[in-house]
Write a protein that binds this DNA or RNA. Structure first.
Lengths: 129, 129
DNA sequence: CAGAATCCGTGAAGATACTG
DNA sequence: CAGTATCTTCACGGATTCTG
């Protein structure tokens, strides 16, 4: 236990950008849908807004910015009138596609189970109170 | 993670559980590590606390409760002294293992790229200002 | 050991209105 | 169309204390 020597390099890097943070960015609530869509093909802003139920403009913009900042999305502006902006997944982000769609499939398949498990848990909890 | 969604039974459950919420629960910041560990084998509370850097007691407990509530974790208490509590992934949660470990692998492999992309983005942003 | 309970600061997230 | 700007609310998450 008492390993009070120098902190390994891996831990230092982990502190600068912990793996948990990357997971959150890449598999976060809104990121999943965006990354999947942007991997299938270039998508426009409003297109994303319509295809992701429940997302607000602010959160869409924020998530897009963050994904772009991390080098997962590429943003292309066409200076037309009205303006046109396309987002597409970068090469490194494409490796996520399989896992993310897998997650989405799992979620859809198990949604009924989750809803029921939740109700049962809450019911048991209500009885205890 | 919308952790405090302990909605009353009167709610319309079918629509109150969007796919995005499931994704958040299942692939959330802390859930990933917990689910992966609990799939590999039964894990104890303190064991999880030690193996997940950066997690607080509160978040560990909260995430465990939510995962249990959704039927993804099974909690077993052994009435020994001192008490022993084990968490293990349920059958339905095991289907997530491949996708989650895939995400973790991707994250580890691309961490250097992300760190650099982030620095470059910030540098470009600083120049624009 | 494995939590529960409490307080509290910070940031996430929504709603709305505005703009080039 | 593709965003900003502003305001507000609420939940995340840390720190601490207590307990069976």
């Amino acid at each position: 236990m008492s390993d009070d020597c120098v902190m390994p390099l891996s831990d230092v890097q982990a502190e600068a950008c912990p793996i948990v943070q990357i997971i959150d960015r890449v598999a976060g609530k809104w990121s999943v849908s965006i990354l999947v869509a942007a991997t299938r093909g270039p998508v426009r802003y409003t297109e994303l807004e319509r295809s992701i139920p429940g997302i607000s403009r602010r959160m869409l913009t924020l998530t897009l910015r963050n994904l772009e900042r991390d080098g997962l999305l590429e943003r292309t502006v066409y200076p037309t009138v009205p303006p046109k902006v396309e987002y597409r997944a970068t090469e490194s982000a494409r490796g996520l596609y399989g896992h993310l769609t897998g997650l989405l499939e799992w979620a859809e398949q198990h949604r009924p189970d989750i809803i029921e498990a939740r109700m049962e848990y809450d019911r048991a909890q209500a009885l205890a109170a």
